[in-house]
Design a binder for these strands. Structure first.
Lengths: 187, 187
DNA sequence: GCTAAAAGCTAATGCTATTAGCCTTAGCTG
DNA sequence: CAGCTAAGGCTAATAGCATTAGCTTTTAGC
């Protein structure tokens, strides 16, 4: 029996891919094993169990989202940066609904938890956006939370096909960016 | 064997209560059966299965959230209405995290789906808030989606203990209400 | 009181995650 | 180059959970 040459990262990446295809709720160890060409119990050599797998997928998703947002912001400031960050974040969630869904309900166990550090890096991307607005220090944290809530809420609601939101969802999203931009500049 | 006098509504209510206590992911048919004083298979006389149960819990949660928001708005207008609605919604999600979590990822099958009608009623509450602002028609839908995204995002992120948000979360929420109010009045 | 549907129950099935224990490969060491 | 060791795989077994089948008992209407 030739060896599969697996490692934890490969298993997690495959799990994230499956989650995007069939939804995180339908990600089963058997499906994952089949995908990576191995029998189910062998997965436990790379991952401590399903819960651990989901945590790792969540950390991966947050890390990738952080890269996407951070990269999109590069070279822009103010409204352009805000729009770039928001669009990049939403695009990521819509392109990878399963792995992003893995982040919902995962609580970081401590500051050193990969989930926490990846989440922090995602926040850094949004922080960079705020730097383009002249915001007084006490407001920065609040504005950050608002940005995160807005993007998270909109993207997950749309990804779940929430509430008959028929067509012009893109239009609503752009409207939302403009609204937020005006509000931030007014601070 | 005396009969338990169950019906679908009682089973769903008990399921929602368990979801709030242990999380929707840990809501098991056995746990629910024990809670309502019946053997597991008997539940299937009232509910088609676990998926159906979760859908019904989601519909209940949306309906209750709609009642909470609608009731809170009564007698207020403008900023007061906005604050009342937002606070009522957040309080509901924090008080009933499990049943609200059931709504995530549930897609209404059609316009007659109880999930859809309950979701619609929740939207009505937010619509009432917007009526207090003089918003031009083409903006109403967008503003509605923004309000929903903001509340959903903030409440679910906090409920999941998202991102080390230490203390002043309440303060951030009030800040967010003020921010939104200013933006809406500027339309 | 009689009947039929509704609401329970026990028993059985099948799927999923997980653990235990064994075997083989790959890489390093003498 | 022989041999040792750890890592990565496998089969077999266990346990929990959802669900179905089929039987029994209550209850409500006639």
């Amino acid at each position: 029996m030739p060896r599969a040459g697996l490692d934890t990262a490969a298993v997690v990446a495959a799990g994230a891919a499956i989650a995007d295809e069939v939804g995180i709720a339908n990600l089963t160890m058997g499906l994952l094993a089949e995908r990576v060409g191995v029998r189910t119990p062998s997965l436990y050599k790379h991952v401590a169990g399903q819960e651990d797998l989901v945590r790792r997928i969540a950390a991966l998703a947050l890390s990738e989202a952080g890269d996407a947002v951070g990269g999109a912001v590069q070279g822009y400031a103010g409204r352009d940066a805000l729009a770039a960050a928001a669009r990049a974040f939403r695009a990521f969630v819509l392109d990878h609904p399963g792995r992003y869904a893995a982040t919902i309900g995962v609580e970081p166990s401590g500051p050193d938890d990969p989930v926490a550090t990846a989440g922090g890096r995602l926040l850094d991307g949004f922080t960079a956006v705020l730097r383009g607005y002249a915001i007084k220090e006490p407001d920065v944290d609040h504005a950050l939370r608002m940005l995160r809530s807005l993007c998270h809420g909109f993207a997950t609601l749309q990804s779940a096909n929430g509430f008959q939101w028929s067509a012009e969802v893109d239009e609503s999203f752009e409207w939302l960016i403009a609204f937020t931009d005006r509000g931030l500049r007014a601070l």
